[in-house]
Simulated assay, not measured.
Amino acid sequence: MLAAKSVSHAEPDRFVEFVDVEKSYDGRTFAVTRLNMHVAKGEFLTLLGPSGSGKTTTLNMLAGFERPTNGSIMLDGQSVDRRPPYERNIGMVFQNYALFPHMTVEENVGFPLSVRKLPKADVTTRVHKALDMIQLRKFGDRRPGQLSGGQQQRVALARALVFEPSLVLMDEPLGALDKKLREHMQLEIKQLHSMLGVTIVYVTHDQSEALTMSDRVAVFNNGGIAQIGTPDSLYKKPESPFVAGFIGENNTLEGVIEQVSGNVCQVALKGGGCLRATAIDIGAQGTSCQVAIRPECIRIAAAADEENDFEATVEGRIYLGDHLRLLARLDNGQLLSVKVGPETTTTEAQRIRLGWSHTDCRAFPAQQ
Rank of each mutant, 00 (worst) to 15 (best):
L320T: 13
Q367Y: 04
N70G: 09
F18V: 03
L157G: 00
K190E: 00
A284L: 13
V32N: 06
R294G: 00
L167I: 00
E22M: 15
G273T: 07
R216N: 03
D171L: 12
N60K: 03
L118E: 07
L181P: 08
T230G: 08
P68R: 13
H205G: 04
V80G: 03
K138Y: 15
Q367M: 09
M213D: 05
L47T: 02
G321V: 09
Q146C: 14
K237I: 08
T56P: 04
M133E: 00
A98D: 08
L131A: 08
K41T: 02
R351Y: 00
L275E: 04
T344R: 14
E17H: 12
C361R: 06
P295N: 09
G54D: 05
V217A: 07
N70L: 07
V32F: 01
E172R: 06
N89S: 07
A218G: 06
L330N: 14
R28G: 11
K339M: 13
S240P: 01
M133Y: 03
K41V: 03
K55L: 04
R329K: 15
T359W: 11
A98I: 04
M74W: 09
D81E: 06
K117Q: 04
G91V: 10
V291N: 02
Q78P: 09
Q186L: 09
T212E: 05
F163T: 14
V260G: 10
Y235D: 08
T204P: 04
K190H: 01
R83T: 12
L167H: 01
L275C: 08
E315T: 12
I200G: 07
P12T: 04
F246D: 08
F44M: 05
S194F: 11
G355A: 12
K179F: 05
H102G: 01
Q135T: 15
Q290I: 15
T199R: 10
E258F: 07
